[in-house]
Design a binder for these strands. Structure first.
Length: 528
DNA sequence: TCTTGCACTTT
DNA sequence: GAAAGTGCAAG
């Protein structure tokens, strides 16, 4: 995030050398390639991923939220993110097929509270939720397809239901998270389960947020109302609103719109008062829900970003106002030989259909736990195979990967791509949903080692590696030690223990892609 | 803190 | 017109 660390009241790590990375304007924020640390396995096997650039759509809007401290509502039924996560991808090989997916990982291991109009750490984080991946429903698609238009992950939903059966991304309330985009080169089978699957990871720090069940910061509420078209009903700027409010309040017209009331209330005690940040939105902004051209903030993004943080003591690499996403490139190493399961190479594949939109419909399993399509069941592929959803039903799926390790791709190393489940099983009503197990997520064990390679991200917390790893190849001095560690991780990932999931505590749940249950117990969840 | 029903909105 | 996405406010 731009300077979200301050808004979240965070004192992050002091070793943030990556802050030296060059800035870019918010209008031009392509990802930049971070070369892998010198490693025979990776340095020569980027496979064309290094040229990929990703820019965040509506970055100004994201930054506005980030400047305040983005909050995302999580509900039992699942809630979309707003602003929506949309990116422009360039640099892809037009004919090569890629799989685009997202995950949302903890930014740190803190729990937060909102008091005195600011976020402060209130304790240690709850054990992380089961990590899930949201695969863009168009996946796999050619580079030409992805580059043709914005790639939207808008339909991704967040939930606080630990047993969510819909494949939504499970988060803990009052915890801070970082969305990440992964671009994976599809293999010859339109999957990414084969050897040497190349991928890169893009992180836009300004998209970090704190998950909440209800908004804490009124500034965030206002930003949501003023920018999200679905919340238009809460905008208090016209006669209709006044009439509506009059009706709601049982008073005669006119009445003071709620937003105005809130604004006044905030202006008295909020640290944001007197900042020239009116809460009313301009007509232009109202007409363009995704526009950043509202009147909420008179400051330029740069000004906002450069403003000294109110409670931001130590800069963190991914919290500093870099205009660039952090990009990590990695190439899947060869499938480990010590797979406990004989058949580990489950493919994630689906024939490319170039006609679909990049904003295709994600697939949310019906609440009725309907059986999986037979076409899928007959397909020993993971999510991207031919399916009624992608063809007959004219609807592509967004596949959710649940990992036994809630740390998600942080520890999901390249090899783990090979262990994705066959879609049939993944789309089958669960009889063994991986119940969340409250293990400390950041301990270590050999199982975790497999998860640590992806994107060169191997440390437990996003901020501990994403912030460092990508830069060390370009940084020197203070990061030298870290760089050394990273290098060694690539060759021999660190040992780390991951939470286990008791596969028999939940009622049958329709899950999408639970990589750890039906894949012959991948090594990162098999230890026990 | 969280859930739920509501009115209102967009799609 | 229906379905789905919003924040609000009561509980």
């Amino acid at each position: 995030m731009a300077n979200g660390g301050d808004q979240f009241g965070l004192a992050e790590r002091p070793d943030s050398d990556c802050m030296d990375s060059p800035k870019q304007t918010k209008q031009d924020n392509p990802g930049y390639t971070i070369n892998s640390p010198a490693s025979p396995q990776t340095a020569s096997s980027q496979q064309g991923m290094e040229g990929i650039k990703v820019s965040l759509h509506d970055r100004e809007l994201w930054s506005k939220f980030d400047d305040v401290g983005t909050e995302m509502i999580i509900t039992k039924a699942g809630r979309r993110m707003f602003p929506g996560y949309k990116v422009k991808v360039t640099g892809l090989n037009p004919k090569t097929k890629y799989i685009l997916l997202m995950d949302i990982v903890p930014r740190d291991d803190h729990r937060y509270k909102f008091a005195d109009n600011k976020w402060t750490v209130t304790g240690k984080a709850e054990p992380a939720m089961p990590g899930r991946l949201y695969v863009h429903p168009d996946s796999p698609a050619t580079g030409a397809h992805w580059s043709r238009q914005l790639v939207s992950f808008q339909k991704l939903k967040l939930t606080n239901n630990h047993l969510d059966p819909f494949g939504h991304i499970i988060l803990n309330s009052m915890h801070k998270y970082q969305p990440r985009l992964h671009i994976v080169k599809a293999d010859e089978n339109n999957g990414f389960g084969s050897k040497n699957t190349a991928f890169c990871t893009h992180v836009f720090p300004e998209t970090a947020f704190i998950a909440v069940t209800s908004y804490q910061n009124h500034k965030i509420t206002q930003l949501k109302i003023e920018n999200n078209p679905f919340a238009k009903g809460f905008r208090g700027s016209d006669d209709n609103e006044l009439h509506r409010m009059a009706k709601l309040q049982g008073k005669d017209f006119p009445v003071v719109p709620r937003s105005t009331v809130r604004q006044r209330a905030c202006s008295t005690g909020s640290p944001f008062s007197g900042e020239g940040r009116g809460l009313r939105v301009s007509p232009e902004a109202v007409r363009s829900p995704y526009s950043c051209e509202n009147s909420l903030n008179n400051s330029s993004p740069q000004e906002l970003l450069s403003a000294p943080p109110a409670h931001y003591t130590l800069p963190h690499p991914h919290l500093q106002p870099s205009q660039q996403p952090q990009v990590y490139h990695c190439t899947k190493r060869k499938v480990e030989e010590n797979c406990s399961s004989g058949n580990r190479t489950h493919q994630y594949k689906k024939p490319f259909t170039g006609s679909s939109s990049s904003e295709g419909q994600p697939f949310y399993p019906p609440s009725s736990f309907a059986p999986p399509p037979t076409a899928l069941s007959s397909n020993a592929a993971l999510g991207l195979t031919d399916s009624p959803y992608s063809s007959d039903m004219g609807q592509r799926q967004a596949c959710m990967f649940a990992e036994s390790e809630p740390r998600s791709l942080d520890e999901l190393n390249c090899a783990s791509w090979s262990y994705t489940c066959p879609l049939p099983s993944a789309m089958t009503p669960m009889d063994s949903y991986p119940h969340y197990s409250p293990h400390p997520p950041y301990s270590s064990s050999p199982q975790g080692s497999r998860l640590s390679g992806i994107a060169h991200q191997s440390s437990p917390l996003l901020g501990e590696h994403i912030a460092h790893d990508p830069y060390q190849s370009q940084s020197s001095g203070p990061l030298s030690q870290s760089s050394q560690n990273i290098h060694s991780r690539q060759v021999s990932p660190p040992l780390r223990e991951y939470p286990r999931y008791t596969p028999n505590l939940s009622p049958p749940l329709y899950h999408t892609l639970e990589t750890h249950i039906r894949c012959g117990v991948p090594e990162w969840s098999a230890a026990s």
